[in-house]
Design a protein around this nucleic acid. Structure first.
Lengths: 132, 132
DNA sequence: GCTGGCGTTGCCGTCGGCGGCAAGGTTTAG
DNA sequence: CTAAACCTTGCCGCCGACGGCAACGCCAGC
């Protein structure tokens, strides 16, 4: 498979694929004429990269996942390194969430809007009849 | 007040202040020797810029607030333009929050963690004795 | 044999918000 | 008198993830 087809199938531009290669995330065989040649494994790698990037990972952060995949594992997340990165990312996202929540409330406050509704709990006293 | 003092009082570098000036957010009188000269109004402008930027506004987005302040208003948020920007920003932040929440859950899911606890409601059946 | 659509390398540009440096001028303290 | 601590302008660098262009090679169909 040449770079154009891989790009089409993975939903990324050839330019991006060359970029991944520059970073050492993607390795290409070469044909006699110098063209890059990819296989289905490479498609899986690119798919892994994209799904992680879509979740907010930096390209560098996808490296352990890619290496995990290339080491023969079924998923890129089944190695200790990748799981560690994943946990770090979760913590980062949680930090962002609390920060953004603070910002949101501050903004709403400046506009005179009510703060984010977090929990509405309406407690209704039960009908005593039911317990007779 | 020269640029160094304004920077110290506002908590920003002189370099940043010159940058704000390049963007037309900050205007400086000049002394005979060419030095920039600022007053208390300029300090208020810089404070406004900083507080907005800390809330996630881009420098360009602070422009209406700055102009509002310079138009003689007590606060930068009391003009229609700035309030519009502020509302847009609130909407953006809300979008981010929902997106990030989705990402968080996806991440936690991949790790086998439980999703974000949103509301814990423990309903305890009341003691029927109380209703006797 | 020629056009069109692939591919290649290499390198500059983008966005934002400055940092940092050079090469000067100015002012103040000792 | 001189050093230190300011100030000035101008310009390059940075981060990340590519986009886009030039200038070229390769291969298919007509």
């Amino acid at each position: 498979m040449r770079i154009g087809e891989l790009g089409r199938r993975a939903g990324v531009s050839p330019r991006a694929l060359r970029h991944y290669e520059e970073l050492g995330l993607l390795a290409a065989r070469r044909r006699a004429n110098g063209y890059r040649d990819y296989d289905e494994g490479d498609l899986r790698v690119v798919a892994e990269i994209r799904s992680l990037v879509d979740l907010g990972f930096a390209l560098e952060e996808t490296r352990p996942f890619v290496e995990c995949l290339r080491a023969g594992n079924a998923t890129g997340a089944s190695c200790p390194d990748s799981r560690a990165v994943q946990r770090r990312k979760l913590a980062e996202v949680d930090e962002w969430l609390t920060r953004l929540q603070t910002v949101r409330d501050e903004l709403a406050d400046r506009l005179g809007d009510p703060p984010t509704p977090r929990c509405f709990i309406t407690v209704v006293a039960p009908d005593p009849e039911e317990f007779r």
